[in-house]
Design a protein around this nucleic acid. Structure first.
Length: 262
DNA sequence: CGATTATGATTAA
DNA sequence: TAATCCTAATCGC
């Protein structure tokens, strides 16, 4: 689940479902018990994301910082009667809604200064308004690293993960193995604009969908999982059926189509 | 029922 | 680069 679109969506959903009412915070698992006690009964004053980092500011001045990592999840509480699992690090709930957090890489309370320090390590976020991109794109254009590795570097651009990097490079027709510095300025611009476009779609839909409906023919009915992506976790190109090439970049696998990406 | 895997990132070596 | 952390669904036996 967790690339930038998930976290932005979550920031909004926490705010809208818990509203302005006091929130009961607890840690059924116990590992965040002390922190939960410090925000228990407070209200959300702001909830936003920077890349994959979530910040929920509470009355009282505490800021809840959550990073889901690879396996973390925030799930809406559906069954009221079910006993909390012993893996729930944090439960946030009031009369209008509730959420259970499991498996986060980070769940902690930070000060405004600490939030600033975290964000200072991150590049521009394609999903934030007025993202200041010129510095990051210039750094990209100078980097000798493979573009596929550079796109995972959160210090350059914050929020892209393993699915989006593969799909964005496909949509832009760029081989992930090319040095970033070999991209011409129009390719860099295209990369950014497609990143913004595709991640906005992901945030709105709550899932990553990069395929063009006209091309795939999925205008009606329920989305089939096979229709959502062009290359990620596939054996064959969704556009032409050619066998994909899989390489490791930035320590993680990425597949590309040798026909459509150069 | 154990092993494997996953849209991530930090730390150690 | 490799090891490590965190959870749960899925898959093979």
């Amino acid at each position: 689940m967790p690339e930038g679109h998930t976290i932005h969506r979550l920031a909004r959903d926490l705010r809208t479902t818990l509203g302005d009412q006091p929130v009961h915070a607890s840690s059924p698992q116990g590992r965040f018990g002390a922190g939960a006690a410090l925000i228990d009964g407070e209200r959300i004053v702001r909830s936003d994301a920077w890349g994959k980092y979530l910040f929920v500011a509470m009355t009282g001045g505490q800021i809840l910082h959550v990073h889901l990592g690879l396996i973390g999840k925030f799930r809406p509480i559906v069954a009221i009667d079910s006993a909390p699992r012993n893996t729930i690090r944090l439960r946030l709930a009031n009369h209008s809604g509730g959420w259970d957090l499991t498996g986060p890489a980070r769940c902690e309370l930070v000060t405004p200064q600490e939030r600033t320090a975290i964000v200072a390590q991150l590049g521009p976020d394609p999903l934030r308004r007025n993202a200041d991109v010129s510095g990051a794109l210039h750094a990209l254009a100078r980097s000798a690293r493979p573009i596929g590795a550079a796109l995972l570097d959160q210090r350059l651009i914050a929020g892209i993960g393993n699915v989006y990097r593969a799909e964005i490079l496909f949509v832009c027709g760029i081989r992930p193995t090319r040095p970033a510095s070999s991209l011409d300025p129009s390719e860099i611009d295209h990369l950014w604009s497609e990143t913004v476009r595709l991640m906005r779609i992901g945030m709105r839909r709550g899932m990553i969908v990069t395929t063009d409906p006209d091309e795939i023919g999925r205008s009606r009915g329920r989305m089939r999982s096979d229709d959502r992506l062009y290359v990620y976790h596939r054996e064959h190109c969704r556009r032409c059926g050619t066998e994909l090439v899989t390489v490791e970049l930035g320590g993680r696998p990425i597949s590309y189509c040798p026909v459509h990406q150069h």
